[in-house]
Design a protein around this nucleic acid. Structure first.
Lengths: 259, 259
DNA sequence: CGTTCCCTTGAGTAGTTTCAATACTTGTGG
DNA sequence: CCACAAGTATTGAAACTACTCAAGGGAACG
């Protein structure tokens, strides 16, 4: 699961900006030419600081961005309250869906410092016309987000606050493993406790209590943005986390040829 | 909003199977040739009865289906409990995302009797290669589902049970208006109260209480599958429903040319 | 005309919220 | 290097929301 094998490493050397795109998922179906093509789509890299809006709800989009480094929140604001409806990790094409939607229904906001690679929608139009295989992989990438959304709907419907928090961290860890950014003992994030509250729709006070509960159960310990976990397996069981839906290893993985 | 104007009606006469696809949204950007092309994609129509599984989680998919008539649930099952993570109405391409994902993370199940139009993924491959404009519209359609998912995440995070139930019905009504299937006074569905419970993650007992609460507030009355609403505006305010995110009329609508 | 499925109601329990008060961290200017 | 301010984290208490279990009522279907 989510190893960093040799070929993955050369990906990052040769394709420093897009080497993590779909890594651990469809990427294994890309040949070198596909990988170069994708890398060359990116016209510019840009660095963002904490809390910057990468793409704002309802703005007409002409470019999209892939996350090279850092974390991204997708947020919906209503009545001065913020709801985090999605997270992104390096390798995620954070607003690729803006290529088809043109105006997003939510904001894309940095969580901590980020590096992003930008591609114009004109270039993506070309990709649609000339590289249907890659276009379909991009489509796949946006649908992966949708699969994660569905899982969030389920966990919000099913789990209580500590389980829900645990599930979100299990997911984050697994997604970081896909792109070789995970450490086994500690999950470092730039998140505050109120970010966790906004992801799960609970109050900050209750988010704190959920974190305390995880610690009291001996499952995980949160200290200023870092989650320390001794036994991920135990935490996953507690959160009823099953990684299938992330389309890495598991029942949903595409094992057939992809052209 | 959501009128049935003359051109919409001819859509349904000339394109009986796909005439509702993206109607009220991107469809206005399709020319007659696009519309014919889409109609001709459908190779077969099939009728399903209540509770049939149209596409099962993790099965390898080679066809996708557009909903011509009826309602569809997207469900995730865990520990013998069912979670409804999405709904579909006529005109929705219910498992178009299976074209890119190949194996779905959830089940697609009929709610009541349904008519579906089937298209093979081979045909969709052709569409990707030969009709990038239509391919992009299909991509858009799958992302519309994702936008609805995000809204569900938000309402689950924000609203209490009666508001959440109200929101789901406001959304359903608006989506039916898009395809000319709404009546102003009564929203007829094949849903049971336990379906409503599974959509919102509450118990059936509590779903019942939420429905009672809506009635006591004079907002809506539920009688065996039909929701009677006198003043949709009042219900929408109560549910904090804002239709933008459905990409019909509103801030997110694509007003620019689409080729 | 009874069985089954669905809906409804009541009572007690668990989970979550709000408000309020206190403590800890980090960064800034003196 | 200290003092203070701002932001973040923690705790307690009371109120509210939703849950479970249990029992009863009603409609639909054979």
């Amino acid at each position: 699961m989510a190893r960093t094998d040799q070929s993955d490493r050369t990906d990052l050397v040769d394709f420093p900006t897009t080497g993590n795109f779909l890594r651990g998922r469809l990427r294994q179906h890309f040949d070198r030419d596909d990988q170069s093509y994708i890398e060359e789509l990116i016209q510019e890299e840009r660095v963002f600081s904490d809390g910057q809006v990468v793409m704002e709800r309802a703005q007409f989009a002409t470019i999209s961005a892939i996350l090279v480094d850092g974390f991204i929140f997708r947020t919906i604001e209503q009545n001065d309250r913020r709801f985090i409806v999605g997270l992104n990790v390096p390798g995620d094409f954070v607003d690729l869906h803006a290529f088809a939607l043109k105006r997003l229904d939510h904001n894309v906001v940095t969580a901590g410092n980020c590096k992003l690679g930008l591609v114009s929608h004109d270039r993506l139009d070309e990709t649609m016309r000339e590289r249907p295989k890659i276009a379909r992989a991009m489509w796949f990438a946006t649908l992966l987000d949708a699969a994660v959304h569905r899982k969030w709907i389920q966990i919000l419907e099913q789990l209580d606050a500590p389980q829900c928090v645990a599930h979100i961290f299990c997911e984050l860890q697994t997604r970081l493993e896909h792109v070789g950014r995970a450490s086994q003992k500690a999950l470092r994030t730039p998140f505050k406790q109120f970010d966790i509250a906004d992801m799960t729709g609970i109050s900050t006070v209750h988010a704190n209590r959920a974190i305390v509960a995880l610690k009291e159960m001996g499952l995980a310990e949160w200290r200023r943005g870092t989650l320390y976990v001794n036994d991920w397996q135990k935490l996953k069981e507690y959160a009823r986390f099953e990684a299938d839906y992330l389309y890495g290893e598991g029942a949903l993985k595409l094992s057939e040829p992809f052209e």
